[in-house]
Simulated scan of single mutants.
Amino acid sequence: MEAVQFSLANKSLKHTKIPVPPIDDPKNVLVRVSYAGICGTDLHIIQGHFPCNPDRPFILGHEFSGTITEVGEEVTNFKKGDKVSVDPNIGCEKCAFCHDGNPHFCKKGGINTTIGIFRDGGWAEYVTCPESQVHKLPESITLEQAALCEPLSCLSHGWDLASPIKVGKNILITGAGIIGNLWACALHLHGHRRVTISEPNQSRLNNLKKLNLGFDLITPDQLKKNQENDSQYLFDFIIECSGFPPAIEHAISLLNQGGKLVIFGVAPPHGRISISPYDIYAKELKIIGVNINPYSYPNSIGMVEAMGDRYLNYDNLGIKVYPLKEYENAIQALKEGSIAKAIFKM
């Protein structure tokens, strides 16, 4: 089969042909991949800034959809031909964190066993997955749309942590990559209209107009000018999607009394920000970290079904589709910011 492998030792990617993986666990299924996304986390992995499998070359890709082509002997909930999306994350199901409903904090499982980060993932024609991590799709959802289930499951977890998000509040989204765009769509779906999106890349801002959300689209420089010209230019709720420490630091200064900051974008581990503890005290600020998607994958399927083509049209979201062999072009386009997201079509 066709695949793109990553080697941490060399920090290199390689387009290659390897055998189709066998079902070596009776509780596993074999999925023929249809669509597989490139996440910002994948870019951090390729740069050597995010933990991943250090022991061998492996296949990246933790956001994917496909069709089951084979099932293990002990699989009971799926059959050949089922359309599915896969939750890449699972805990050990034994530790205190897992029993407390926080498998994403699990030190044995969690990120340490993630499909596409520690185990072979979806940048290939086929991938094996445990039955417990596979979700059957309703007929109303296309495989193309289902490739967005994983990022939307993380968004759903962030929404739960930050709730209530009251309609009528002033909201700022920093960063118009795919996750910022999906947050914008989710807010619009829920009735929010007083939303500003800040993004330095003008082509990404221009592309956002295709979504026809009616939100205020500005650059970070315009954001700073508005703040300088009006001391009351503040936001009740800020969703930071860039992972850029200076943007996070600036966002904190834009919070109103009682404001919430959701740190959604993944910053580099060495990144640092400066913050006034007095402001946290005096304004009663809430700073909320969001780490992957514990038990929120079913919610993402519901969100995809509710959003439909109105919000999840690839072209309107700034998503470009590539064949697997053009992985270098896909990654370069993401780094340049000419697209919001790249997705492989097998």
Rank of each mutant, 00 (worst) to 15 (best):
P51E: 02
I141D: 02
S163A: 14
S163P: 08
A333P: 04
P138H: 12
A3L: 07
L148G: 03
G48F: 08
D55H: 04
I252R: 04
P164M: 10
N313I: 15
L13V: 09
H188P: 06
N201W: 06
G302F: 15
G37H: 01
K320I: 13
Q133W: 07
P54M: 02
Q227Y: 15
A124R: 01
D24A: 13
L143F: 04
H270E: 12
A267W: 03
V75M: 05
F64L: 00
L143A: 12
N207H: 06
S242T: 07
S65I: 00
E228D: 13
P26G: 10
K341N: 03
G81N: 09
P54W: 03
D24H: 14
I275H: 07
V195S: 04
A146M: 10
Y314K: 13
C98F: 01
I339D: 00
S34F: 07
N53V: 00
K80Q: 12
D160W: 03
I343S: 02
V262N: 10
P298C: 15
A162H: 05
C241T: 15
G180F: 01
G40A: 05
Q257V: 04
V167F: 11
T196H: 10
L152I: 15
L187Q: 04
S7L: 02
S276W: 07
V31W: 05
K325W: 10
P200H: 14
P164W: 00
I23L: 15
M1R: 07
N102V: 05
K335Q: 15
K107I: 03
V262Q: 11
N206R: 12
E144I: 05
K341E: 07
T69E: 09
P298T: 14
C98M: 00
P323L: 10
A340W: 02
Y233G: 09
H190S: 13
V31A: 12
T128G: 10
M307S: 09
V4S: 06
I18K: 08
A9Y: 08
S85L: 11
A147C: 12
P88T: 13
A162I: 05
